[in-house]
Design a protein around this nucleic acid. Structure first.
Lengths: 341, 341
DNA sequence: TAATATTTTGCAATCGTATGCATTATTAAT
DNA sequence: ATTAATAATGCATACGATTGCAAAATATTA
């Protein structure tokens, strides 16, 4: 009934050794004889002893906690990433402390203070940016920061993204090959590097073929805004025959408007392409052609970099861009051989 | 460059007071004069001092960390719940440490040890069960445990669910009123209380009307299994004209099979009803009639109970069931007045 | 077997903060 | 102005572990 916290001292008494001996048995890499090992372990399991991570952290300066800041769990790319991330870190003996960044106020200042209070070993910002001021605070505190699925003009932290520029190019190439004449783009939030790079690659490739955007709206990576954008874009006299939407999440909303509000056929009248390849994209109701963000590889890189930074504080920040394939499905017309542009 | 950890002692020196004074300024409810307060706060902000939560926890025995065990982040009900939960706890000064329970092995034993190592103030199990043995360990350790969206035959922990039995009843009532003759059910994982209660309510209400299940398959709360179940159920000679699927997530998969593989019309030939009311259910491509699980109220209850348990260790476990409405959309035929059964 | 090298072990200090207790400064009451 | 009550402060200890250091135990070598 009463709260029992078993301490190393109690184990030591029962095992007939010193408290340090107990500690050493539970500290990988410390020296302890076979005999003590046995005595301590049996005493520990008898009492149900497990070392107190918090007390350990106080000494070692390592909490084995990674702070993760997320804002858009409603975009299905992030739960997936969170799951992978948490699993991968768990395997390495770390755990994820979650902080929600309020979507409205982009400032994560308060949240960041809270994170640092927990003495986290590192911070991962998932699709969240950080003021230069805050970055300095983290660097001063010796806490490595990683950006996941976002870059920023600050070379003090590592970033992992998909190759957004290349992804944009692939989409443009594919749409042009499909014989589309009037190509539109629905942008994400314009403060996001992912949005910026996807669009830049897209436009660049169009330009290479002597083409340019026929229409452009902004959806802010938010479904409601995307719906509005689609309504604007597709109620003009001459509507686009293809649209690249900066995220799958928005693309679903756009498809819904196109099909169910406006009664247009996809892909016969309009081709739609998304970005992310979240699971829903493969559901037959959407069957969305999209650029895959390889979440597993992105997470693997993130974990490997972050552990390296923790182990070796002198590690230089890195910027990783992972190539992802264009996944061909039914929401966009496929290149017709006779039709070469 | 070097890792600087500013301690209360340094602040004390700069402010010209004792270390205890600094501590008191940062401890709500402790006494400190106006003068010291000012001196300390200004010194603290000059040095960028913030109290070390871990050190504090060591003394107070409270870590302000809540351990959350999740397994199904791919079911979109959980990211939503996680977001709400994290936000609500954040407001109260707590944070969520995430542990993924491997979906394959139902045993969360190892995970639980890790949780306890972090000296969490409480544990929330989201749709995860716990062996009686483990429960005892938690009780012994004085850590309150809550089940979210699951109940269990163990009165040592509180549970919060929607009223699954009533929900099942509502669905049956509605389908019967809609004039359906052959009613099927696709079950979730049979070890889950939610599955069990939904089905029990459903069957009970059918019985009240002198009816029984026309067909039944098991989907295990997994989309692939649900697809298989749907294929079996709807390739018989005489197929059901209505099916209740134990979760939205499975319902989407079932709808896809019904419409795109088998070419049947929803709701003309088959009515489909789900459970959860995740955001996708309202997307026009699915437009799913479903029972809403009021995530916000469920989370609010969870947080309030858990905080109460932390404050007052004598708090008795409670079992909350929250009623959720049946949300009428287009995937199921609506009662036709002329047609009374 | 004796001398040396190596491994184990316990002691004691430490991490950064909270808090009971005794003391002093402040305020209120007479 | 004097005394009594209250508030503020500092001292010292505790929380539960890790770890450098020196002593003791064990293993190695000649």
């Amino acid at each position: 009934m009463a709260t029992k916290k078993v301490t190393s001292l109690e184990v030591a008494k029962l095992a007939g050794v010193s408290q340090s001996a107990v500690s050493r048995v539970f500290t990988p890499g410390a020296s302890a004889s076979k005999k003590t090992n046995e005595k301590v372990l049996s005493a520990a399991s008898e009492l149900g002893y497990r070392p107190n991570i918090l007390a350990r952290s106080l000494i070692t300066g390592k909490s084995r906690i990674i702070g993760l800041v997320v804002s858009h769990l409603d975009n299905y790319f992030y739960p997936e990433a969170l799951e992978l991330l948490s699993n991968a870190l768990q395997k390495k003996g770390y755990h994820v402390l979650v902080f929600m960044a309020s979507k409205t106020s982009g400032n994560i200042d308060e949240v960041l203070d809270e994170i640092l209070d927990y003495q986290v070993d590192a911070i991962i910002l998932a699709s969240v940016a950080m003021s230069s001021n805050l970055a300095t605070r983290c660097v001063d505190a010796g806490v490595p920061v990683m950006l996941f699925n976002r870059t920023q003009d600050d070379d003090r932290f590592s970033t992992v993204t998909s190759d957004n520029f290349l992804g944009g190019q692939k989409v443009a190439k594919f749409l042009i090959a499909g014989g589309h004449k009037r190509i539109g783009y629905i942008a994400g939030w314009e403060g996001a590097s992912t949005q910026h790079d996807r669009e830049a690659g897209f436009i660049e490739e169009l330009k290479q073929h002597g083409r340019s955007l026929y229409a452009r709206e902004v959806g802010n990576f938010v479904q409601d805004d995307a719906r509005q954008a689609a309504r604007k874009m597709f109620t003009k006299k001459e509507i686009p025959d293809a649209v690249f939407v900066a995220s799958d999440d928005m693309a679903f909303a756009v498809m819904d408007v196109i099909r169910f509000e406006l009664g247009l056929k996809i892909p016969e009248q309009v081709s739609v392409i998304g970005y992310d390849d979240v699971p829903i994209a493969s559901w037959p109701a959407y069957d969305l052609t999209t650029v895959r963000q390889p979440a597993n590889r992105m997470v693997a890189e993130t974990v490997s970099i972050i552990l390296e930074c923790i182990e070796n504080t002198e590690t230089k920040p890195r910027r990783i861009e992972i190539d992802g394939p264009l996944i061909l499905r039914g929401s966009a017309k496929i290149s017709d051989k006779s039709n070469k542009e």
